[in-house]
Design a protein around this nucleic acid. Structure first.
Lengths: 228, 228
DNA sequence: GAGACCTAGATTGCATACAAACAACGAACG
DNA sequence: CGTTCGTTGTTTGTATGCAATCTAGGTCTC
């Protein structure tokens, strides 16, 4: 991470993912240049990179904003993600090495332990590593970069914090099953498991968002009731 | 096309697609700045954009080169393209308007006429428009931009010039069938036709490249025979 | 003669100054 | 009172100069 572009990229990305800049927040170049201790030139390049990955939107002559996702976006993104992750899993089935499969099994252990201990951040971290192995094993740089674009949303929304115990257990089951499918070298199996896995994640997220919305409405009603 | 970045982008892209810069050719920033009548700043941005779309590769401190595709790349790209294009067709089936379907049917006529007249460039142009309608109708900006990344290769390789009459006829058949599937609003049908269509294209391209290679080898052998 | 090292030229990466476009505010007019 | 237009401040877009890095050629050593 020597180049100023990389510093800028990492800093901005971290600031978005940790919530310093929420959805829709303005990303002024001068401000970011100060934050990342670089000039505007590398900041601009970093912003374009982040745009490709779907984390920010830049409008001509109007600057950059953190992406804000609608329900339609979410639907679209998870459709894409299901298709792409399944393709990656299928390709990985015939290419992955035993060592990597072992590492995935190990990550399954870690995730289950972390889930049992209620450490959702640790689950999320191990989960990213787990899926990362599948992508690497798919041996397709293009596919890998496309997957990056549809995986930012779950990161931004801290999806694991929306998982109930049942959801976590089902997710762990998918992970174990995927390991089995890969060990068997079964493309179709791996593809199918991954589809279930992503689709289930979408379902959890949508349900959770609907619940959030209901809460917000209730809160709003209460507030109006108080002030009226 | 007012902004210098857009000028640079268009000029460089055109220069690559018309063969002025072949695969592996070096793309010096100063040279491109002169070509596009802009400074290096917008040229750099344009190059990054072209990198995203897969037309060029840029290496840190080493500049940009036109992408050169290996047989593995080709395999990988067509796998991805089949999956994404099929997804787009499926989504389009339930969203496309009758007007757009009519336009697609019209483009079918044009392509068949052009093919009969041996005007392969005209076929290619209409084909791009035809597939463009499907992508727009898929109503997914992300999917659209991903498809752009896996559609540069066929453009660069002028794939239509490798089609024999039988291939062109099969392709036309796929196009007609896709129109029918979309008119019927049948997602599964549209998905399946598109898979066939892309897979057939891959097959033609691979066969054509193998033929090229054989020719090259023969020519080389001949030459060595002469010089020996 | 082969290989490593060093130097010179050229090229990319970064910073900064300037120009162009946009947004917000206020005044003038209908 | 509302609308429109001008004006000003801020932000993005572009050009250019300088520093850091890479490539190539030659020389020196083994």
């Amino acid at each position: 991470m020597e180049r100023a572009v990389d510093r800028a990229y990492s800093s901005i990305r971290a600031a978005i993912l940790d919530g310093s800049y929420g959805p829709g927040a303005r990303l002024g170049e001068a401000e970011l240049a100060q934050l990342t201790e670089a000039s505007r030139t590398p900041v601009r390049e970093a912003l374009r990179q982040l745009e490709v990955e779907g984390l920010v939107e830049v409008l001509p002559h109007r600057g950059a904003r953190v992406s804000a996702f609608t329900a339609d976006d979410l639907d679209e993104i998870y459709d894409l993600r299901m298709t792409l992750e399944a393709l990656a899993a299928g390709r990985a089935a015939s290419r992955i090495t035993p060592e990597r499969i072992d590492r995935m099994a190990q990550l399954c252990d870690e995730m289950e332990d972390a889930a049992a201990a209620g450490q959702l951040d640790a689950v999320a971290t191990a989960n990213v590593a787990f899926h990362g192995i599948v992508r690497e094993a798919s041996a397709s740089t293009r596919l890998t970069s496309m997957l990056a674009a549809v995986t930012q949303l779950p990161l931004m929304m801290r999806t694991f914090h929306r998982y109930a115990p049942d959801d976590l257990q089902r997710s762990a089951g998918h992970h174990r099953e995927l390991v089995a499918a890969l060990r068997a070298g079964d493309e179709v199996w791996a593809d199918a498991v991954m589809r279930s896995h992503v689709r289930a994640a979408k379902s959890v997220l949508l349900a959770s968002l609907r619940a959030d919305e209901a809460d917000a409405t209730t809160a709003l009603d209460d507030e109006m009731g108080v002030t009226a």
